[in-house]
């Protein structure tokens, strides 16, 4: 009897340990594990993955602290939430070789946006569909993103309103309503152009501003603005503030220590998007350029690898809702 008990005891003590350790290996089989932790503690681990074109890539996404999310930049893949301690398995297949950015989609601290990694997809590049990346508009227009564009002298009686513009009963000529005009002009330039038109002779300065509001609103749709708003809330509001005032929770963090943020970046209080003096000297092309390039020596991330071009324009359109009344119906 004693011997049976001894054998059972040995089997139990070592068996339990061996089974668990073995299960660990079996469990991990065939999957690439990506651990997510807050950026201060390491972010994505690993943050660089290589795979082959048209081969399924089995990922196991694991959060070791708080809620994170996983998405691939510029793709249609729905973002996946990664809940702490609850691995999420996904399979990705890339049909184009290249370098893809994956990023965290749930805010996980002030440095959340630094949680980015790269999936390198290797394969025969000759199969690549010719998809020449178009150069950003701000480069084509030779806009210097880092030059100051605020208009401290700008004096408005009231914030321009699209609705009041419509009541003027004036339809701006077609050249103002073209997409090219909207993208490449600042509201201030548009006001100058409209002021010198003969149809605005009887309008006061404020009324001309309403015409600018009209032109800006004509360049977008409510549907696009909704897309832009969603992107803004998810990605921008934490710093720029839900109302665009530059008072998001992490911006306030930045103002506590004006010189460097917790990871060594210059931290600058974001501008107030509601202030026409900040906004009316900027063209949509400039704003979109800032979004996709980022940098500026501030904490502003670059979104070029993340947002599709359409998304970046939708977001740009949305930014005007803060400084133009009734921009969105």
């Amino acid at each position: 009897m004693e011997n049976i008990a001894r054998i059972a005891a040995i089997v139990l003590v070592f068996g339990a340990s061996i089974v668990i350790v073995a299960a660990r290996w079996v469990n991990a089989g065939g999957k690439v594990e990506i651990h997510a932790t807050m950026p201060e503690k390491g972010g994505w681990l690993p943050d660089n993955i290589t795979t082959q074109v048209n081969e399924p890539l089995n990922l196991r996404l694991i959060s070791d602290d708080v809620v994170h999310g996983f998405a691939i930049g510029q793709s249609d893949l729905e973002p996946v939430d990664i809940h702490p301690g609850k691995p999420k398995d996904i399979t990705l297949t890339f049909d184009q070789p290249g370098s893809y950015t994956f990023y965290c989609t749930r805010w996980c601290g002030a440095n959340h946006w630094r949680m980015r990694g790269t999936i390198t997809v290797e394969g025969d590049t000759s199969t690549t569909v010719s998809d020449e990346a178009t150069s950003p508009l701000y480069l084509d227009l030779s806009i210097d993103l880092d030059a100051p564009h605020d208009l401290p002298e700008l004096n408005l009686e009231r914030v321009p309103s699209t609705e009041l513009g419509q009541k003027l009963g004036i339809d701006p000529p077609a050249r103002y309503l073209s997409r090219e005009y909207y993208l490449s002009h600042t509201p201030n330039q548009a006001w100058g152009d409209l002021r010198s038109e003969s149809f605005s002779e009887n309008l006061n300065d404020s009324q001309v501003w309403e015409l600018v509001a009209l032109v800006w609103s004509a360049a977008t749709t409510n549907q696009l603005l909704n897309v832009g708003q969603e992107l803004y809330n998810q990605n921008c509001a934490a710093c720029h503030g839900a109302q665009g005032r530059g008072d998001g929770v992490f911006a306030l963090d930045a103002s506590d220590s004006p010189e460097l943020d917790s990871m060594g970046n210059d931290a600058v209080q974001p501008p107030d998007f509601n202030d026409p003096r900040q906004m009316y000297g900027a063209s949509p092309a400039l704003l979109q350029g800032k979004i996709i390039r980022g940098g500026m020596g501030t904490g502003m991330p670059s979104w070029g690898q993340i947002l599709s071009e359409d998304q970046s324009w939708a977001l740009t359109n949305f930014l005007w809702t803060f400084s133009i009344q009734d921009h969105k119906e």
């Binding site: 807050m38 708080v66 809620v67 749930r106 805010w107 996980c108 601290g109 002030a110 959340h112 809330n233 998810q234 921008c236 509001a237 934490a238 710093c239 503030g241 839900a242 998001g248 929770v249 992490f250």
Partner: peptide
């Protein structure tokens, strides 16, 4: 409910109500 760092939630005992929030998203 707002959050100042990571995703948080709020569960109210007795009323059994729950919401959650991401930073920047009230």
């Amino acid at each position: 409910l707002t959050s100042s760092d990571v995703v948080h939630g709020l569960y109210l005992d007795g009323y059994e109500l729950e919401i959650s929030t991401d930073p920047g998203q009230t």
